[in-house]
C-alpha cells in the first residue's frame, strides 16, 4: 500500500486529505510541523510527501532541502495562489510539483499518481517512446511525427528529450536551461521561450489548446502528453 505523508498545520486540511486519500486506498500519516515532516520522511519512508509551504516552524523550502539530503521521495507542494516565488524556490530546491490551494481532489490525486509513477525505481527511460502521433527513438535521436521524420536542431531535440523523459513533471525555467544549455545557464528565459515556441510549431501543438507542452507562467513548462505503448 502506498504511504503518503501529509504536512500541514491546519487540522481541517489534514482531516480532509486523510479522508480522501484513504478512500483512494492510500495509507496516510499526517504531521503539522516541518521538524516532524523531516523526521517522518526519514523514519516511515513514505512514497509521497504533500507539503504545505506555510509551516509554523520551518520554511517549506528548508524542509525540502533537508529531506532531499537523504531521499528522492516525490514531494508535492501545496501553496496559496500568490506565492509564486515560493513555488519556484520550492521547485528549484527539489520539489516535484505544486498544487494551488484551494485545489480539487481529483487534480491532487492525478499529480500524486504521476509523481509516484516517475519515482518508480529501476526503470530507465524506454529507448523508444510514443505520444499519440509522436514517436521518439532516444538511442538513434530520431523523432517521427505521423510517421514522417521530424527535423529538429540539436537544441530542439535536447529540449524535447528533457520534456518527454519527464512526463507530467513541472520543469522550471532554471532546470530546463541547465539541462539543455548547461550549468552556467539559469536566467535566460528568452532563449528557452524561443525554442519552446519553435518546438511547439514543429510538433503542431497549439499553445491555446495544448496537447503536449503546457506553459506555467513565471515558473516553467510541463509535458502533459500520456505515453502510449511504443511496442504496439
Amino acid at each position: 500500500m502506498n504511504r503518503v505523508l501529509v504536512v500541514d498545520d491546519e487540522p481541517q486540511i489534514r482531516r480532509a486529505l486523510r479522508t480522501s486519500l484513504e478512500a483512494h486506498g492510500y495509507e496516510v500519516q499526517t504531521v503539522g510541523t516541518g521538524e516532524e515532516a523531516v523526521i517522518g520522511a526519514a523514519e516511515s519512508a513514505p512514497e509521497l510527501m504533500l507539503l504545505d509551504l506555510g509551516l509554523p516552524d520551518l520554511d517549506g523550502t528548508e524542509v525540502i532541502r533537508r529531506v532531499r539530503g537523504f531521499t528522492e521521495l516525490p514531494i508535492i507542494v501545496l501553496s496559496v495562489r500568490d506565492a509564486q516565488q515560493d513555488k519556484v524556490a520550492a521547485l528549484d530546491a527539489g520539489a516535484d510539483d505544486y498544487v494551488t490551494k484551494p485545489f480539487a481532489m481529483e487534480e491532487l490525486l492525478a499529480r500524486a499518481r504521476a509523481a509516484m509513477r516517475r519515482a518508480q525505481p529501476g526503470e530507465p527511460p524506454a529507448p523508444t517512446m510514443r505520444f499519440g502521433a509522436l514517436e521518439m527513438d532516444l538511442g538513434r535521436r530520431l523523432v517521427l511525427l505521423e510517421g514522417e521524420t521530424l527535423r529538429l536542431t540539436p537544441t530542439e531535440y535536447q529540449l524535447l528529450e528533457a520534456f518527454a523523459t519527464h512526463p507530467g513533471k513541472l520543469l522550471t525555467h532554471q532546470w530546463l536551461l541547465r539541462k539543455v544549455w548547461g550549468q552556467g545557464y539559469g536566467t535566460e528565459t528568452t532563449y528557452l521561450r524561443t525554442y519552446v515556441r519553435a518546438l511547439r510549431k514543429k510538433l503542431g501543438d497549439d499553445a491555446q489548446a495544448p496537447q503536449l507542452i503546457v506553459t506555467e507562467p513565471g515558473v516553467g513548462y510541463r509535458w502533459i502528453a500520456e505515453s502510449t505503448d511504443a511496442e504496439s
Binding site: 528565459t189 528568452t190 521561450r193 499553445a207 495544448p210 506553459t215 507562467p217 513565471g218
Partner: peptide, 13 residues
Amino acid sequence: QAAMDEIVEVVLA
C-alpha cells in the same frame, strides 16, 4: 522578461 502573446495563450487555454 516575458512574451505577452505567451501569457495571452496561457490564459486563453
